[in-house]
């Protein structure tokens, strides 16, 4: 599967990682090498083999529906990132996390 820089940019956008043209080109070379390695899999006939997601064949354990968590907002918001753009204030107000306006 040959990748193009356009593909790199598309994947980078899906991943929310900014890449400029130079980075995209450099990434393309390395990713192509890695994908070449991955391509070895295609030679294997896997017809009828069940995919393996977990190494142990066990089922999900269930948790009792009991409140075990307390309010730790203060501690959690103490590590909020800075607002940026010249402000070193934490990006929180009135207990809410602040982000640039979400447009619906």
């Amino acid at each position: 599967m040959a990748l193009s820089t356009e593909d790199i940019k598309k994947i980078a956008h899906l991943s929310r990682i900014e890449v400029d043209d130079n980075e995209a080109a450099a990434t393309l070379t390395k990713l192509s090498g890695i994908l070449g390695l991955i391509e070895q899999m295609q030679a294997v006939d896997t017809t009828g083999i069940a995919p393996m997601s977990h190494s142990q064949d066990i089922s999900q354990r269930l948790r009792n529906d009991v409140v075990t968590k307390t309010n730790e907002r203060e501690a959690f918001q103490a590590i909020a990132p800075h607002l940026g753009n010249g402000s070193t204030e934490p990006a929180v107000a009135n207990g809410l996390y602040l982000v640039p306006k979400v447009i619906e």
Binding site: R16, E18, Y97, V99, K101
Partner: peptide
């Protein structure tokens, strides 16, 4: 790791998409 609740947030950004992409880059 999106720069919203903890961790690195880009110093300058113009909108939400820009904040995500720069913070992660």
């Amino acid at each position: 790791y999106d720069g919203v609740r903890y961790g690195h947030r880009a110093e300058s950004y113009t909108d939400l998409m820009d904040m995500y992409c720069k913070s992660r880059a």
